[in-house]
Design a protein around this nucleic acid. Structure first.
Length: 291
DNA sequence: TGATCAGAATCACTTACCTCA
DNA sequence: TATGAGGTAAGTGATTCTGAT
């Protein structure tokens, strides 16, 4: 796909109006990931934990940020994502600003430094951030409301290797507190929290995402331990029962059961009433039994 | 009314940076 | 000082859901 075409399909999408969009999401649904061929069988059956569901109302004026341009580009070809979703364009490399929550940006433009490199997704970090041929830079142009933090980050990202953000203890504490209250945030909460922490909404979102993943991982470990214990209990129980069976078998061999010592009794069916009974008894009661 | 599409939200997995033993 | 492990912020590619057409 030629780059001009790319911008036509997605990147020159400008302002979007605010939308009221009720969202209902089931979090941590039990589901299978059966689609990606690259998954191992274990991964295919990887289950999420069913925790809760929540009604989220999102009023996040679309803030349609160029989210995903990815895949192998070859001139004149299409993106490797479904053609229907190509309009969403984003991070080709770490130099791409990605902030779909920044509803205050005015437009997203692309600056092409050089020709696109085939197989961008396979580029190494140094290749991505280098300044050599074939490197494409995408720059998000925010409106005047963009925070200084954003500007700083753009500078940093353009400058070289990606700098890892370290949250302060205070920030982590506040995030943790919020997580205790709700494990997901609606856009309003996200924005508010981001403002409070002097972070971008995307960073808050990522933190919650990673936090949920950590919670799930821990829960999985706990579940695993419980299952191990349960398994051990069952094994012990099974061993006990096996032992009991052995003992009973030994007893049986030693002395035949008492019912085998009783005289044999023949049961027969009365042709008129079709009831079973011992003949001697039936003879005594036949006047009542078979009328 | 059902089909289709776009966009948002979220996920699992991965990468890369940073700290610390 | 070098190094490997572990923690975690961020990137990537996918699915699901919902509203609009």
């Amino acid at each position: 796909m030629a780059f001009d075409d790319l911008s036509n399909t997605g990147l020159s999408l400008g302002l979007f109006s605010q939308l009221e969009q009720p969202k209902k999401q089931q979090y941590f649904q039990l589901h299978h990931h059966t689609k990606k061929a690259i998954f191992s069988p274990d991964q295919l059956t990887n289950l999420s934990l069913a925790l809760c569901s929540d009604q989220v109302t999102s009023k996040n004026g679309l803030s349609f940020f160029a989210r995903k341009v990815h895949g192998e580009f070859e001139s004149g070809t299409v993106l490797n994502r479904q053609a229907s979703s190509i309009s969403v364009v984003s991070s080709i490399s770490s130099s791409v600003k990605r902030d779909r929550d920044a509803s205050n940006y005015e437009d997203v433009k692309i600056t092409i430094v050089n020709q696109m490199k085939p197989n961008i997704s396979g580029m190494s970090h140094s290749e991505e951030t280098g300044s050599g041929e074939g490197v494409m830079k995408i720059k998000s142009v925010y409106n005047s409301k963009a925070t200084s933090h954003d500007d700083r980050e753009i500078e940093e990202e353009e400058g070289g290797a990606r700098k890892k953000l370290r949250l302060t203890k205070q920030q982590s504490l506040i995030l943790e507190d919020n997580f205790k209250e709700h494990i997901t945030l609606n856009p309003k909460q996200k924005q508010a929290l981001a403002k409070q922490l002097n972070l971008r909404a995307r960073q808050v979102e990522v933190w919650f995402q990673n936090r949920r993943a950590r919670t799930k991982l821990k829960q999985t470990e706990v579940d695993c331990e419980l299952l191990k214990k349960f398994c051990k209990t069952l094994t012990d129980e099974n061993r006990k029962l096996q032992k009991e069976v052995q003992e009973l078998k030994a007893l049986k061999r030693a002395a035949p059961p008492f019912y085998k010592q009783l005289p044999a009794v023949t049961l027969s069916i009365c042709p008129s009433c079709e009831r079973a009974g011992e003949p001697a008894l039936r003879q005594q009661t036949s006047s009542k039994f078979c009328k």
